[in-house]
Protein backbone atom coordinates (compact mmCIF):
# COMPACT_ATOMS: atom_id res chain seq x y z
CA UNK A 1 0.00 0.00 0.00
CA UNK A 2 1.60 3.25 -1.12
CA UNK A 3 2.42 6.11 1.19
CA UNK A 4 2.00 9.60 -0.17
CA UNK A 5 1.82 13.12 1.18
CA UNK A 6 -1.67 14.44 1.79
CA UNK A 7 -1.31 17.15 -0.85
CA UNK A 8 -1.16 14.50 -3.57
CA UNK A 9 -4.45 12.90 -2.57
CA UNK A 10 -7.29 13.17 -5.03
CA UNK A 11 -10.79 14.25 -4.29
CA UNK A 12 -12.75 11.37 -2.79
CA UNK A 13 -9.63 9.40 -1.94
CA UNK A 14 -9.39 7.72 1.45
CA UNK A 15 -6.32 6.92 3.49
CA UNK A 16 -4.91 6.41 6.98
CA UNK A 17 -2.44 8.88 8.45
CA UNK A 18 0.92 7.26 9.10
CA UNK A 19 2.98 10.23 10.23
CA UNK A 20 2.68 13.89 11.06
CA UNK A 21 6.13 15.26 10.39
CA UNK A 22 5.91 18.64 11.99
CA UNK A 23 6.33 20.03 15.48
CA UNK A 24 5.68 23.37 17.08
CA UNK A 25 2.48 25.27 16.70
CA UNK A 26 1.33 23.70 13.44
CA UNK A 27 1.99 20.20 14.77
CA UNK A 28 0.06 20.93 17.95
CA UNK A 29 -2.91 22.37 16.10
CA UNK A 30 -2.97 19.50 13.60
CA UNK A 31 -2.98 16.95 16.43
CA UNK A 32 -5.55 18.83 18.53
CA UNK A 33 -7.93 18.59 15.62
CA UNK A 34 -7.54 14.82 15.45
CA UNK A 35 -4.98 14.43 12.68
CA UNK A 36 -2.79 11.79 14.36
CA UNK A 37 -1.29 8.54 13.04
CA UNK A 38 -3.97 5.88 12.70
CA UNK A 39 -6.76 8.30 11.84
CA UNK A 40 -8.67 7.63 8.65
CA UNK A 41 -9.26 10.59 6.40
CA UNK A 42 -11.10 11.19 3.14
CA UNK A 43 -10.51 14.15 0.89
CA UNK A 44 -13.87 15.78 0.60
CA UNK A 45 -12.97 18.60 -1.75
CA UNK A 46 -10.93 21.67 -2.30
CA UNK A 47 -11.71 25.35 -2.17
CA UNK A 48 -12.43 27.07 -5.47
CA UNK A 49 -8.76 28.04 -5.83
CA UNK A 50 -7.66 24.39 -5.09
CA UNK A 51 -6.44 25.41 -1.67
CA UNK A 52 -7.22 24.79 1.21
CA UNK A 53 -8.36 21.18 1.20
CA UNK A 54 -11.42 19.86 3.06
CA UNK A 55 -11.08 16.52 4.85
CA UNK A 56 -13.50 14.14 6.44
CA UNK A 57 -11.88 13.22 9.75
CA UNK A 58 -13.72 11.00 12.20
CA UNK A 59 -17.23 12.47 12.02
CA UNK A 60 -16.40 16.03 11.15
CA UNK A 61 -14.93 18.12 8.39
CA UNK A 62 -11.59 19.89 8.71
CA UNK A 63 -9.78 22.18 6.35
CA UNK A 64 -6.09 22.83 6.01
CA UNK A 65 -3.81 24.44 3.49
CA UNK A 66 -1.88 22.42 0.93
CA UNK A 67 1.45 23.50 2.39
CA UNK A 68 0.26 22.18 5.77
CA UNK A 69 -0.95 18.93 4.22
CA UNK A 70 2.64 18.54 3.00
CA UNK A 71 3.68 17.50 6.51
CA UNK A 72 1.13 14.70 6.74
CA UNK A 73 1.97 11.30 5.32
CA UNK A 74 -0.94 9.06 4.39
CA UNK A 75 -1.20 5.41 3.46
CA UNK A 76 -3.78 5.17 0.72
CA UNK A 77 -5.63 1.94 0.14
CA UNK A 78 -6.70 2.49 -3.43
CA UNK A 79 -7.07 5.38 -5.83
CA UNK A 80 -10.77 6.08 -5.87
CA UNK A 81 -10.37 9.03 -8.08
CA UNK A 82 -13.08 11.62 -8.46
CA UNK A 83 -15.79 9.65 -6.72
CA UNK A 84 -18.95 11.67 -7.08
CA UNK A 85 -22.29 11.11 -5.51
Amino acid sequence: MPRIMMRQMKRGQTGVITAVKVGGELGRRVRDMGLVPGTQITVQGRAPLYDPVALRVMDGTLTLRNNEADHIEVEVSEAREGRQS
Binding site: L26, R29, M33, L64, R65
Partner: peptide, 10 residues
Protein backbone atom coordinates in the same frame (compact mmCIF):
# COMPACT_ATOMS: atom_id res chain seq x y z
CA UNK B 1 2.41 32.66 7.96
CA UNK B 2 0.63 30.52 10.63
CA UNK B 3 -1.49 27.31 10.61
CA UNK B 4 -4.92 27.42 9.02
CA UNK B 5 -6.30 24.09 10.33
CA UNK B 6 -9.96 24.76 11.05
CA UNK B 7 -13.29 23.00 11.35
CA UNK B 8 -16.17 23.26 8.89
CA UNK B 9 -19.14 22.75 11.22
CA UNK B 10 -22.15 20.87 9.84
Amino acid sequence: STPFVMELPP
